[in-house]
Amino acid sequence: MDRLLLAISTFCFLFGFAYTMHALGARVYKTSRLNFFAILSGFLCQTAFLWHRGQTLGRCPLTNRFEVLVFLSWSMVLFYLLIGPAYRLSLLGAFTSPLVFFFQIGALLLVDDVPSKLKLAPNGWLEMHAAISVVAYGAFALAGVAGVMYLAQERQLKTHHIHSIFYHLPPIRDLAVANGRLIIAGFALLTVGLGTGFKLGSMFTHSPLTAWSVGVWVLYGVIAAMGRVHRISPRRVAWLSVTAFSLVLLTLGGLRFVTEKATL
């Protein structure tokens, strides 16, 4: 039942992505409610999946890598729904949809959805710690998406080669602001998530996950500081956010420890 919800959700994101690509290909892309509702429908199905899975497990559904991927996708869409309309970044959805689609199709087809072997009593604080941390990665993911959009738009402006997508991408200043705020939001959430984890106990101490999470925290802390304090150019912030999230993706296997070592 819950995997069906996820499959429907995945289809919604595929539809949103395909629709946008078709419209861009035909060069008649307009801000479309259809695309927005496809993403919104996908989000509602994701939410229903997580709620159903949470009810079944009796805890926050972050017990294996499959669920972590879905939760991460949900977080990305959550930030898109919060940030996109505020900044009129309609095309942000078009860039977010494929990433969410690949996360979810990967989770459905490639990742075993087996319950964690470790059975511990539900712990609200620990679950909140894990959930906040994954939501933080969602913000970083969307910052990476905004970074890609910034670099695409900036390149066209610099080289004077104006393609049809130019007219659909938002102003680079708006993208720079969105990128910076997403990094700050993700960093703040990860700070809370890690802080909660450390305060809860020593289960993370000395684990590879601890080192990995702290590494990500430091990386984004440095980017946030460079953007805010040292005021490096938005272009460099965009490059850094894309590079940083690519690194996070490449080391995503580390998240396995969340499920198998973190006792959730």
Binding site: Q153, L157, F166, L169, P170, P171, I172, R173, D174
Partner: peptide
């Protein structure tokens, strides 16, 4: 158009 794509 270009100004709006830079500054909003």
């Amino acid at each position: 158009d270009l100004a709006e794509k830079i500054f909003g």
